[in-house]
């Protein structure tokens, strides 16, 4: 293995096919997104260069501000929900004394393998304003409020984010369980000798050692929130009005409903840049701490 890794030719040989495919199917497509975002184009006809007109229209649109705010809210809800519950559940099922560990491990992952459409239909029924299970439960406990969960101008985006968070929490859960399994038991034994309780051991051992896993989980959930689309398309259609529009939804409607591909691609370009910014920011935050740790270990000043 070492022989291969020290041979630049072997590395190039193995990387080239993947890099080639990535360049053709991903990188060139992203470049085209940016290129055509400067055109007035309906997707099938002749594209007319219009400079930054699509961007100026996009930035001056009130829907753009709504979409960005929605992306942020969506990302916040799913990140907090998924990381919090996934961590708790993963730590719980990793405990040897936890009863029905295998059952819970499977149960938490089940929503992930369900079709998004099925999950959306399920939650649409539960959140229905008139006949939904949630409102029925509220009535059963004596509340006379009939919440319009998916039709609320300011609340629907949180309901949609919750559905997404509920479904994909199992994915983060699986990653964190795998991360916990890779931690040597010696750390816990040492903590036990030092008199640390199980909670303190997890707080000071498990969570810090899962930094790389959390980095990936954060990346997935934050970018997933920014580019939210499926639940919106199925459950609210972006409504009421533009209340649940996101950048991805603006892109879809512009390209496929209004036949304004150029405008839709401008929204897509902004989306790509936003996701890139998030990746860079997270990289910076995590890299910075890593460097500090290394400096500390080397005896340097933090």
């Amino acid at each position: 293995m070492k022989r291969y890794l020290s041979n630049p030719l072997a590395i190039i040989l193995f990387i080239t096919p993947t890099l080639g495919l990535f360049t053709i199917f991903v990188f060139s497509s992203i470049l085209k997104v940016f290129y055509y975002s400067f055109f007035d184009w309906n997707g099938v006809g002749t594209a007319v260069f219009t400079g930054v007109e699509n961007y100026s229209k996009l930035f001056s649109s009130s829907t753009f501000a709504t979409a960005n705010a929605n992306g942020f809210k969506f990302a916040l809800v799913i990140t907090v929900y998924q990381l919090f519950f996934a961590s708790i559940f993963a730590i719980a099922v990793s405990d040897r004394w936890m009863p029905f560990r295998k059952f819970f491990r499977t149960a938490y992952f089940i929503p992930v393998v369900l079709s998004v459409t099925v999950v959306c239909q399920l939650w649409t029924s539960i959140l229905d304003a008139d006949n939904g299970l949630l409102n029925a439960l509220l009535r059963a406990v004596g509340s006379d409020s009939r919440q319009n969960w998916l039709g609320s101008r300011y609340g629907a985006i949180y309901a949609l984010a919750f559905v997404n968070a509920w479904q994909w929490m199992g994915y983060q859960f699986a990653l964190i369980v795998a991360g916990i399994k890779s931690i040597s038991t010696e750390y816990y034994e040492a903590a036990e000798i030092d008199g640390a309780s199980a909670t303190r051991a997890h707080w000071h051992v498990t969570i810090p050692l899962l930094k790389e896993t959390y980095f990936f989980c954060l990346l997935v959930s934050v970018t997933g929130g920014i580019k939210a689309f499926t639940e919106i398309q199925i459950m609210t259609g972006g409504g009421p009005g533009t209340a649940t529009h996101t950048l991805t939804y603006i892109m879809y409607r512009a390209a496929f409903v209004s036949h304004r591909y150029g405008y839709g691609l401008a929204a897509a370009a902004v989306l790509v840049l936003e996701c890139l910014a998030v990746i860079l920011l997270l990289n910076y935050l995590f890299r910075d701490r890593e460097a500090k740790q290394l400096r500390r270990l080397a005896g340097g000043k933090p």
Partner: peptide, 15 residues
């Protein structure tokens, strides 16, 4: 597209 979106907003009673 817009007339559909904004009339829906109006009938929602929240705009």
């Amino acid at each position: 597209d817009s007339i559909g979106t904004w009339t829906q907003a109006l009938v929602s009673g929240q705009y």
